[in-house]
């Protein structure tokens, strides 16, 4: 049995999220993953940035560092290079990770540095009250898209894959066990690992987009997510408004960044050319 309290800072509860928010479920999935892997709380450093997703690390009893908006992966890169022995995890959001932090996400993926990034995608800027993000679908409504969002969104998993990450997965808050399993795999993976967790924001997003209740939003996740192993059962037409969940991409060949740097230092110490 998972003793979830062991991993929480109980004095920091209740959390500050709105009723129906998916963030708490993602925290639970992370704890399930850490417990499954048998990691100690001391060896985990959980970095966040700014936004609702950034509040996840207030309530968990790991080494926790909240940084500036979007820059989390750059902070985490400096930390990981000096402490490669620690498990560095980043929780970000669709605004924090895909908009203001997009450049750092690309380059952390390219370097294939051993950091696990969990991007909670609730399709909206929640903390500031419901503005559209680069992952808000075209045509949806937000406080800054009162006539409907005319901007196309993009597939953040494909972006991270093209940039060079070596473990990429997607899940939802509805599929919480799958989310936990994928986070565990991502943490165990040596290299840059990335999980997009499709989540719900009933207050900032749902009520402006004909999904008033958390239940409706979770049902939307259930109905629109297709497990990657079952994708061939659907026609291209049927897949149009659906998205894939599961392990999307794994590359075990590409070398990890901190290992390459260590190898360079070793060669120099032995008097080689580096």
């Amino acid at each position: 049995m998972l003793d979830i309290k062991k991993y929480l800072r109980l004095s920091k509860l209740p959390h500050i999220w709105c009723p129906g928010c998916g963030n708490g479920s993602v925290v639970r999935a992370l704890i399930m993953a850490v417990d499954k892997l048998g990691l100690s709380k001391d060896e985990i450093v959980l970095f966040t940035g700014i936004g609702c997703s950034a509040r996840t690390n207030v309530i968990v009893d790991f080494n926790t560092i909240q940084t500036t908006h979007g820059r989390t992966l750059a902070f985490a890169t400096g930390f990981k290079l000096m402490r490669p022995d620690m498990k560095v995890i980043v929780i970000t959001g669709d605004g924090d990770g895909a908009a203001i932090g997009g450049n750092h996400l690309i380059h952390a993926a390219r370097r294939n540095i051993d950091i696990t990034t969990i991007l909670i995608n609730n399709s909206i800027y929640g903390m500031t009250g419901g503005q559209y993000s680069p992952l808000s679908p075209q045509g949806t409504y937000a406080t800054t898209a009162p006539y409907g969002n005319i901007e196309p969104s993009f597939d953040i998993c494909k972006l991270v894959e093209a940039a060079g990450a070596t473990f990429i997965a997607r899940s939802t808050v509805y599929h919480i066990q799958l989310t936990a399993d994928l986070i565990a795999k991502a943490i165990a993976h040596k290299g840059f690992s990335f999980i997009e967790v499709v989540s719900q924001c009933p207050v900032g997003y749902g009520r402006r987009n004909r999904m008033r209740t958390p239940y409706e939003m979770l049902m939307w996740q259930k109905e629109h997510a297709v497990l990657v192993q079952q994708a061939q059962r659907y026609s291209l037409e049927e897949m149009k408004d659906k998205f894939l969940i599961g392990e999307l991409f794994v590359n075990k060949e590409k070398r990890e960044y901190t290992e390459l740097y260590e190898e360079l230092r070793r060669k120099l110490a032995e008097g080689g050319e580096g």
Binding site: I65, R71, A74, F75, T77, G78, F79, K80, M82, H104
Partner: peptide, 14 residues
């Protein structure tokens, strides 16, 4: 932006 962020991250590591 990333440069100083990484510097602060390394300093946080001690």
């Amino acid at each position: 932006i990333a440069s100083i962020a990484a510097v602060i991250g390394a300093s946080m590591a001690g």
